[in-house]
Every structure is written in C-alpha cells, then in structure tokens.
Write a protein that binds this DNA or RNA. Structure first.
Lengths: 142, 142
DNA sequence: ATATTAATGATAACGATTATCAATTGCGTA
DNA sequence: TACGCAATTGATAATCGTTATCATTAATAT
C-alpha cells in the first residue's frame, strides 16, 4: 500500500476525534486543512482504514455510518434519548469473563458456544437517565 | 388508523417469518399473494409497524434494514462468519439481572447508571464456531 | 348510499455510498 | 536524478435503499 497525504489526514482526523463522525463530517474537517480533497477520497480511505483494522464502523438509526478511530476493543451504547454514541471501554481484570457467560445464560444459548466480539447496546446514557429524558420501555432494569 | 389488506399482509408475513427479512424480501413474499402490491406500500407499512411497536429493525453490515416481527424483548447476535442474524431470547428468571451490572462493570460506567434496552452482539454463531469458520480476533473469549 | 379522507401504487426524488476514469503522484529502479 | 508504472486522487456518474409526491382507490362513519 502506497502512502498518501489524504489517507494520512483522514487517519489523523479520525484518531483525534473524540466522537464518531460520519464520512461527511470527516470530509468537512479534512477540507479545512486540505481544501482540494474530494469526498470520494474520504469515503475510500475510511473504508481502507476499516479494512486495515485501524477504524471501526458504528451503525446507528440515522442513515449514515459513523466511524471510530479507536482500535482498542470496546463496545458502544446508543442513547435513544439524545442519539449520542457512547464508548464503553473494556477494563482489564474487570468482570469481562462473566459477560459472555451471562449473555449465554440470559439468552438461552448455553447449550451451544457463542463468541462475542463486540456489542452495541441500545438504551439511555447516564446524562439522559439523570435528566429523566424518556426513551420507552426498559429492557434490562436495575 | 384505517385497516388495509396490504398492511395486514405485511404484518402476517413478518410474523410468520422466522428470519429477519429486508423490505425487498417482504415485498417479494407479498407479491406472491398480492401481485399488485407496490414496494412503497411495503416500505410504508414496515415503517408503520415499527412505529406501532409491532416490529423491530436490525441494522447489519449490509446496507438494507432487516425487519423483525417478534415483539417480545430479545437481543440479536450478528454472525461475522455467515452473516446470520440470530435471536437471543430472554429467559424468565435467568441471569438477566446480572447482565446490566456486568455491562457496567465490564465497561467502567458503574459510577453512572446506564439503561440497556436491547443489544446487538457481533461475533460468531454456534454453527460457525463448531465448524471452525474464522471471523477475526475474539473480543470476549471463554 | 354517500362523503370523507387514509391508504395505495407508480414513480420521482433523495441521501449515502461506490464505480468510473483521466490526471496526478509516490516510489522502486536504471 | 530522472524515468516509468501502478496506486491514488478528484470529479462526477451510477447505484442502492428509502422516502416524498400525487392522482386514484377504498375503508368507514354518517
């Protein structure tokens, strides 16, 4: 794979972003620094980065894919109230081992092994929960 | 809301399907019984059913939305190897209570409450796991 | 039966993404 | 260092899933 300024820029923007921008948002950011960059190049490089494992994709309820520059394993929570995509970081030595077992036990697939690579939870983020913003019925209550 | 043959048919097809068909697939099924039905009507009614809470939507890695006629709470597992969407049923009196806690503990949001309504897990289904079909690195291993 | 108006079906429009293709550029080699 | 070639780019056409438009049809209240 040949080096290109454009791909480097897209990579940098994605890594620097604390959010989960769409291709369009990465494009807007990229033009500020490289006005001649084309949107096709942005799409192309985002796709490449995902294939290289240097970026992830999060699909939400809006039509556009959101990209994620964090390569460390983590999960996401999509907030039904504010639409925010929240990172759920993996903690070393945490309760992680139990999660997969619980998924199996909770959903009745104990008889067959299941591998869980990542997860997207749908619910409400701490902010919205605190502020009492509603989002329908609760799946897993406390 | 006024009754319509078309909406009834879409509802019936979705309920009867054991799978998670796309709008196109529901359309194909519907034409067999009602050849004059239009695809816009199918899209329209699928959307309506989702709004009525009579159907769910699952977004996978392919571009099209998949619809789900099951209204009971459940989660999904998207198999990275075969692309299958697997239902993860909720079991009464199971380990469900622990799941949310474990999500919080595993991902370090214990300090703030999080509400989890549903979840989409990405990984490998029992079939692919048994047959040794690969799907990249494992997130939660056993 | 009739009037009202929601729902339909055909199709145009739309938004996100991908394909095409000529021009450009990175980079190994002479 | 200059050359040559293939990867990459930017502009834009094409595609795909979905929604909007609108004249026609049909469900239901009177």
């Amino acid at each position: 794979m040949r080096h290109s300024k454009q791909r480097e820029l897209v990579r940098k923007i994605l890594k620097a972003a604390g959010t989960h921008p769409t291709a369009e948002q990465v494009y807007e950011e990229a033009r500020k620094v490289m006005p001649e960059i084309g949107i096709a190049t942005v799409y192309r490089n985002l796709k490449t980065l995902v294939e290289l494992g240097e970026a992830g994709v999060v699909r939400t309820d809006d039509q556009a894919d959101h990209f994620d520059g964090r390569t460390e394993k983590h999960a996401h929570l999509l907030c039904d109230s504010c639409g925010r995509i929240m990172d759920l970081e993996l903690r070393r030595g945490g309760e992680l081992e139990r999660l997969r077992d619980d998924v199996q036990k909770a959903f009745g697939v104990e008889d067959a092994e299941v591998e869980v690579r990542t997860a997207v939870f749908h619910g409400r983020c701490p902010d919205c929960l605190r502020n009492g913003r509603t989002s329908g019925e609760t799946f897993v209550t406390h």
